[in-house]
Design a protein around this nucleic acid. Sequence first.
DNA 1: AATGAATGAGGATTCATTCAT
DNA 2: GATGAATGAATCCTCATTCAT
Lengths: 193, 193, 193, 193
Amino acid sequence: MPKLGMEPIRRAALVQATIAAVGEAGHLDVTVGGIARRAGMSAALAHHYFGSKDDIFLAAMRHILSLYGAEVRARLGAASTPRERLSAIIRGSFAPENFAAEAVTAWLVFYVRALGDPGARRLLAVYHRRLRSNLLHALRPLAGARAGAIADDVGALIDGCYLRAALGGAPDGTAEAERVLRSLGTALDPPPG
Amino acid sequence: MPKLGMEPIRRAALVQATIAAVGEAGHLDVTVGGIARRAGMSAALAHHYFGSKDDIFLAAMRHILSLYGAEVRARLGAASTPRERLSAIIRGSFAPENFAAEAVTAWLVFYVRALGDPGARRLLAVYHRRLRSNLLHALRPLAGARAGAIADDVGALIDGCYLRAALGGAPDGTAEAERVLRSLGTALDPPPG
Amino acid sequence: MPKLGMEPIRRAALVQATIAAVGEAGHLDVTVGGIARRAGMSAALAHHYFGSKDDIFLAAMRHILSLYGAEVRARLGAASTPRERLSAIIRGSFAPENFAAEAVTAWLVFYVRALGDPGARRLLAVYHRRLRSNLLHALRPLAGARAGAIADDVGALIDGCYLRAALGGAPDGTAEAERVLRSLGTALDPPPG
Amino acid sequence: MPKLGMEPIRRAALVQATIAAVGEAGHLDVTVGGIARRAGMSAALAHHYFGSKDDIFLAAMRHILSLYGAEVRARLGAASTPRERLSAIIRGSFAPENFAAEAVTAWLVFYVRALGDPGARRLLAVYHRRLRSNLLHALRPLAGARAGAIADDVGALIDGCYLRAALGGAPDGTAEAERVLRSLGTALDPPPG
DNA sequence: AATGAATGAGGATTCATTCAT
DNA sequence: GATGAATGAATCCTCATTCAT
């Protein structure tokens, strides 16, 4: 019997290497060879396990989105009031693991890739839907009819913060999270005069 | 008899063709040949006028940013109160010319290019600084110490709206502009109770 | 407990799979992996049994030629007169098993392979010699000194029919066999004026 | 103005180089790089002028067939009686230029390629149709109803001779042409008893 | 000013083959 | 006996870029 069970290990290594490489370069012009080398294997093996460069990218994007989803889901599980739910979503979106410079860059690069790649676009649509649904669920009790518009604002705001963080190199998402939360708090519960 | 003054015409044509090509493709993997064909000339001539593909991209980005700047500047010129100035900046940011699907896509693609290209990054930094300074100038009289945070929020929000518009295909920036303005209005002048 | 006597079974399966794959594709660009899959085993095992792709091809060609030889030999065994011998050779050459579309294609592909592969060429030379000797044996009593030229004609004619059958998709060699026989009959025993 | 008119020269050189390379190797596994080197240019230029390896092959095959067609057409032009027409077709088919070892090999390799390549198959179908029509035209006055069968025989016989010549290395088609003609003569005008 | 000609460098992908288990 | 794991080598093709005219 041959050495078995390498596939998930290799795939995971390639996904990690892809995110690292893309995060470092800031664009998708990374070679399969480069990714494979980073992951400690030959380019041929990368193709063996993934079929094509596009598939590797897609898997990496799926990984990023699933990490993000897991983070938010975990925090939502511990939230009971609407405000706590809002905080969970936003703080989760800026959690340090997701907000490391490299991760943010990779996120953004893959995000933009969705412009021209239907597969990536589908993945992103799922993320967008889930985020919006989470936000609406938390906002409706607090904002009623305005919930939709506010959710859109918050969604765009989060993405915008990522965009800028990727460029500016914010070492930590805490500040952003707090700012967004405060901004949101103002909208929901405006301070007197 | 050599045609005189072709240079600016050729350059402009190439810049337009680049934006169109990038906007259509959704990424920077457009060939110099393709751009040149679109602009009605040979690839060799494109190189003659620009030196390299990177230079073409940079010129295109510069063009996009200068269009944006002109739009906002024009509107700012007609504004007198701080609120009018805010409105000018935001409505200018979502002006239809800048918000056509193709333009937004190109904007975003070049934006992300700044992640890995110092030249593009410098260009973008100028835009960021100018936007922030404009916003601060308008916000300080209205929000005092909160002006900085609000300006950051608005900047990120605008970028986030572009990001989502590029993917979602918003046919018109008016709705976004109004939403941002309303959100900003809430923060500045909270509705009673 | 190791399975015993697998070798001949595996080898036969691979040979069959090779002929089928080549016959289907119409060329030799079939992968060892594809052949092995067709034969229900791993590519590594195919190498284990055959050593190399070339060896697999050679074995397949040998198989085709031995089938052909067996067919003709069987029919020759039942022939007693020179004319019966001729008929046995020609009808055997177009026997349905050998003339199935896939088989003819594979035959032809391997035939052409002999152009560049000494091993295959040797195999083919054996077939050519045997066919010629069989034909001469039968023709000499009927055609005397013309036997050699007629044998060459018939040999080329048979090969040419294969060539065209492979392209035209003759569903059955019967028609070809009869045509060749009639043509031969004319040469041997010309109809009156 | 640039150096002009290279295209037809380069294309012709590549076609020649392809035929030479294929004829030498005996198979189609010749690299674009090898062909290009033989033709005195870079592989990139070969792609520039032909688009793909397949297109190069197709052009080479077209060239071979057009040479053959021209040869036969020229000889047919000088023929007046049906027998002269037959002789023109057959002698033309075995004309030395077409029957040089390298040319025959290339012919055969491309012939077999038609098994799996629709483009090549179409080309070959044209050749087959033309040959058959030429033969019928000449045979009908001589053989009446038997013309069709004889034409098929002769066509297959010619192809078969090529097949064998490719393997056997006949230095000259004259012998083959005479043999085929004699065989045909026997069929048409059988020698007395 | 303008362009066809030409190429070198590089990248994705495929595949026969080897090896450890 | 059998196979998943792994890779080096090879090939097609693309493209930015240069050059002669």
